[in-house]
Design a binder for these strands. Structure first.
Length: 511
RNA sequence: GGUCCCAUCGUCUAGGGGUUAGGACACCAGAUUUUCAUUCUGGUAACACGGGUUCGAUUCCCGUUGGGACUACCA
């Protein structure tokens, strides 16, 4: 079997879309599964869209999620350079060959010429005007112009593009690994520009040339490329590379969570979830985009989530490490239908992965948050906190955000809870409890509980009735980990102080 | 509009000519936790429609509808 060589070939036009990360992942999984090579190539043939920092962003993002590059940008390799802008002469050579063989031609039409042509065709009733086997006979190109005029134009440096001479009647077929046979009639394909007037190739040419030169075995890319895939097949044929043509696999697209359409940055902004792997600040527009990393997603969880967007192992196993994914992955099990992006599932995966981590590691997350707040905390205490909060955390930052009251006494109290649960009985119990707690020599969760039970028994009030009020006085809110553990963690003095504060602050409410 | 792709619970999906159409997320309910959460148990919920083919179609074929992509000297 042919050596598996796959490539991820993004354009450095901004932050890497999460769909791009999934594409990279599938490529990577295939490469690893068959001991092949994963190549990173930068498709920067559009100078006008180049965004500084995008290349670094792509590399950092891939590194963060654990997709290692074997060859290409930042790594080097036998087919360097891996930046298309640095491979310019290669493409021109190929274009020239196509022209010499009669499969491509020079076109000198200006933008106005093209616009006029489209207008003309539209008024004549043509639905989608194209530069093709019919219309090219009426345009200014090396097919219609006399040879010396073409030579003169070229010599004078008149701007031109190179277009592919698509045959008039030919069935173009390709066997997509995901979709099966796809057939398109050549009359539906237009004479695509191969070389732009600035001397740069377009995607189509550069892509085919580089994939061939870099000995790519499988082209795994988004479905948006499916309509132009037949064109690429034609290119392989005319370049004489048909035998080495890679296999194609066009991935289903990532769709909006609700409604219709492709997942876009706007969705992320509106629904409040990230759509990029890392935070990104566009240097030109100053626009900010938030990333999964900064939102608190663990790379392994993101990978697991992404892998299941359009692929499944056919078993009921859902949690997969990267190695397990590599083992289980096959192109055959990739689905065909577009996939709606559901952030809930991503959160669920994150929670699973977070819980599976050691308390030592989780304590580090908490300690990091605390350091940012300028709060001191012992390792021992952090471990204790993390172990009681573990079951409820989805993100590393939750330990701090949902456990603030472990470090800072509440100054205000949840109003609805106050009106529901703060009553005379509660005040009686809390007053007595505060007293009892202060008399204790040592204080832990068990003693906290026993003492509370003693107090309620003496007063003849059900513990359940006032527990919410006690929690309120200690934390200010109605939700959190086991209350007795909370009290143990903050200690006897603090418990007494907080009950005292609540008692005085909430006095008015009862009266 | 044209070309191409797609279609199983709200979402991700398994399945496949005869199944109680399975799982996961989400949601709801009950149990446990003297609270919330966790955990456990249970529940609501799907083969888009119409024709064929067939003894029998959700499954195969065709059409309709719906959705998506592409339709640039962008990738």
């Amino acid at each position: 079997m042919r050596e598996v060589r796959v490539r991820f070939a993004p354009s450095p036009t901004g932050a890497l879309h999460i769909g791009g990360v999934r594409t990279a992942l599938y490529n990577f999984l295939l490469a690893r599964k068959y001991n092949g090579k994963m190549i990173l190539r930068i498709e920067d043939t559009d100078q006008t869209r180049y965004v500084p920092g995008a290349e670094e962003y792509i590399q950092e993002a891939l590194k963060w999620v654990g997709i290692q590059i074997d060859e290409g940008l930042g790594v080097g390799g036998p087919h360097a350079p891996y930046r298309q802008s640095e491979r310019k002469p290669i493409y021109m050579q190929c274009a020239l060959r196509l022209i010499a063989d009669g499969n491509a031609y020079y076109a000198f039409d200006t933008e106005q010429d093209l616009e006029a042509m489209r207008e003309r065709l539209k008024t004549a009733g043509v639905a989608s005007p194209q530069y093709n086997s019919i219309t090219r006979t009426q345009m200014r190109n090396s097919l219609t112009l006399p040879e010396d005029e073409v030579k003169a134009l070229l010599k004078d440096g008149v701007p031109y593009v190179v277009r592919l001479k698509v045959p008039r009647k030919e069935e173009v077929r390709l066997n997509d690994l995901i979709r099966g046979w796809v057939m398109v009639h050549s009359s539906q394909i237009d004479d695509k520009v191969l070389m732009k007037s600035d001397g740069m190739p377009t995607y189509h040419l550069a892509n085919v040339v580089d994939d061939y030169l870099m000995k790519i075995s499988h082209v795994i890319r988004g479905e948006e490329w499916l309509p132009s895939a037949p064109l690429h097949v034609l290119l392989y044929k005319y370049l004489g590379w048909e035998a080495d043509m890679p296999q194609f696999a066009h991935l289903p697209l990532l769709l909006k969570p609700t409604g219709d359409g492709k997942l876009s940055k706007r969705d992320a902004d509106q629904m409040g979830f990230p759509i990029f792997p890392l935070d990104w600040l566009d240097p030109n527009t100053k626009e900010k985009a938030s990333g999964f990393r900064e939102a608190g997603y663990l790379p392994a969880a993101l990978i697991n989530f992404l892998a299941f967007l359009g692929w499944n192992p056919g078993t009921t196993q859902e949690i997969f490490s990267m190695d397990e994914l590599i083992q289980a992955f096959t192109i055959e099990r990739i689905g065909k239908a577009g996939t709606k992006f559901d952030i809930h599932k991503a959160q669920w995966f994150n929670q699973q992965y977070l819980r599976a981590e050691s308390n030592e590691l989780l304590a580090k997350y908490l300690l990091a948050s605390l350091a940012g707040e300028g709060i001191q905390c012992s390792q021992e205490k952090a471990l204790k906190i993390v172990s009681v909060m573990k079951e409820r955390a989805v993100f590393p930052k939750d330990f701090w955000e949902q456990g603030k009251f472990l470090f800072v006494a509440p100054i205000s109290f949840d109003d609805s809870l106050v009106s529901k649960r703060w009553n005379d009985d509660a005040v009686k119990v809390l007053t007595a409890y505060q007293d009892a707690v202060q008399k204790l020599d040592t204080f832990d969760a068990v003693q906290a509980k026993n003492t509370l039970e003693n107090v309620t028994r003496e007063l003849g009030i059900g513990t359940g009735k006032i527990l919410a009020a006690l929690r309120l006085s200690i934390t200010g809110v109605g939700a959190g980990p086991d209350l007795m553990m909370i009290m143990e963690i903050i200690g006897k003095e603090e418990v007494s102080k907080r009950i005292g504060y609540a008692l005085s602050a909430l006095k008015v409410k009862v009266a």
